[in-house]
Design a protein around this nucleic acid. Sequence first.
DNA 1: TTGTAAGCGTTATCAT
DNA 2: ATGATAACGCTTACAA
Lengths: 365, 365
Amino acid sequence: MTGMSQGRDAARRATIADVAQAAGVSPSTASVVFSGKAPVADSTRERVLAVAAELGYAGPDPRAASLRRGRSGIVAVVLEGHLRTAFLDPVTTAMMDGVTDGLAGLGAGVLLLRDDTDAVAGAPTLASVPVDAVVLIGCSGRLHEDLDAVRARGVPAVVIEGDAGEGVPRIDLDNREAAAQLARHLRGLGHERVDVVTLPFDASRLRGLASPERIAAITVDVTRKRLDGVREEYPDARVVSAGGSSIDEGMIAGRTLLEQAEDRPTAIMAQSDLLAAGVIRAAEERGLRVPEDLSVTGFDGVVVDGLGDHVLTTVVQPAVGKGRAAGAAVARLLAGEQVESIVFTCRFREGTTTCAPSHGRASAP
Amino acid sequence: MTGMSQGRDAARRATIADVAQAAGVSPSTASVVFSGKAPVADSTRERVLAVAAELGYAGPDPRAASLRRGRSGIVAVVLEGHLRTAFLDPVTTAMMDGVTDGLAGLGAGVLLLRDDTDAVAGAPTLASVPVDAVVLIGCSGRLHEDLDAVRARGVPAVVIEGDAGEGVPRIDLDNREAAAQLARHLRGLGHERVDVVTLPFDASRLRGLASPERIAAITVDVTRKRLDGVREEYPDARVVSAGGSSIDEGMIAGRTLLEQAEDRPTAIMAQSDLLAAGVIRAAEERGLRVPEDLSVTGFDGVVVDGLGDHVLTTVVQPAVGKGRAAGAAVARLLAGEQVESIVFTCRFREGTTTCAPSHGRASAP
DNA sequence: TTGTAAGCGTTATCAT
DNA sequence: ATGATAACGCTTACAA
């Protein structure tokens, strides 16, 4: 009944205490050998390390360390909906990359958390997982709920492009001004008839030509701001909403706007590069040349796969930079510092998809 | 110096012990109220909850819970290279989605870990972060190193499409057979001249027409298997390697194969749907109609953005399923069960991009 | 149904 | 440079 059959000692993994004892040092000394937080005599270190290797001790258990230190080295990033959907958007991906970058310096990893309405029972939540901080992306419906949960725990949070509450630092973009800049570019080229393909207006993601009423009711912040920017210059632009940010959606929207040769615009402004790529395809499909017959602008400045040889005229948003800023903000928050919200600025980039409108009617196919 | 300025008691967050004491119950009872792992009298529960709310106690600290339970509820997923790159591939994204799905049932979250050669100093590692298990994706150079680190800690691991070591369950795909199936489809349609666009051969990602020597030296498992499958049927196919899995890469490769009208193939088999989409664009760019003048097949069966109205003839791999399987495998591993490796099977899907070759020379533009 | 008590494995602090 | 000691906040046998 004792010894063998019980086998407790044999099965148990070695702890730092075991190593310390076997090496004939105190646990604190052994701890320091692994953390390097205080000077240790070389001979001592070697002895401890040797014993550790012998005992198969692979270093301090992060679970125990995180309890003691009060830090887990994990930062949660909350995304809306399925990963598949979230990561379809290259901007999100780039941002995530920036976040991991910004956090790596801190030694923290990124934990992906979904913010579905239909969460699986037992799924990990902000409350169930040991996170040091939280980055919330986008304006999820759950945002405020999440923020409350997080605040109750005293976990610092940063919101990227969403309506944060009191005292939560935001990372934002000058969506309106950037869009206006693109519009002014087209105006400068001489365009009068300019239409817009927008991101979704709201959760319904309704597609199609939008009435003034629908436009007035846009709830997605990014969509509204970018549209407002365009309308500073072209208040009468026709507006078609897409069902998402993708090439195929852009193609559908582009077809709608290019349907009738009579009131065809000389330029189409898309609210994302992906949508712009789709618009270009819709134009080419009708035999229109870009930019000679139709100028097209995008938004984001991401690398769009499938754009072929075109270089999109667009505004480049610092997506990775936004992520990094979020990471950095988290770092400062964890250091107990005050953090201000930041607004990032887009940079105009002229490509090969815009030029002066051809005079008279565009050469219809 | 005392009281106010010190403020220890005031600043400290309430613990479950504080709640228990204030509610006049024992810590264990309070614990059970939150975990629900044992019956508690309604009146007791309510009292505890009320006190908790009053004290601003938001539930047990996951850090402490994870030490005590020996589980953190976190599973690391190790990806190769930058997230930007990894998530550019829709298959990876879908797989990740499956992993989160499979793990959600377990109540575990997904921690993203990069496996760069050039890791930032202080970046989180498998050793520094409290993970219950690890999922390794792809055949990174670091794979074996990672596996050793993980094994030393007694952390269970699963490998998706990579060369796992002893006793590590793998999640695999019938790459060779699926490719062969596509080849047989083309043979059945009557194609004799079939060429191939492959994924990268190795870390160098060299582009272009491949010599037999280069082909013999392919190190990427997936590339080799899919190519072997094709060569069962078409041993003399010309092979062009792409620099990655993307539409633009497919377009470049497609141009290479379609350059000379004289020895143009009647069908091109691409090793991914993205590459296939690029090949189609390269064909259309030359005025070739798909499938009349050129049949094109893909691999993966993912939704390709920017494919327009074509439906790709391809083999559908259960990417989400693979991820789920990895999640499930992890769950069983954590339950102490033995887990076998699994090989997933692709399903052939006939689309609109293949048909019998047109007789005589294809209508050259 | 509730309470008692014993850790989980580490690290920070303060002596020595 | 090293050691003793006390937490970190929680969970779970087991006892009552």
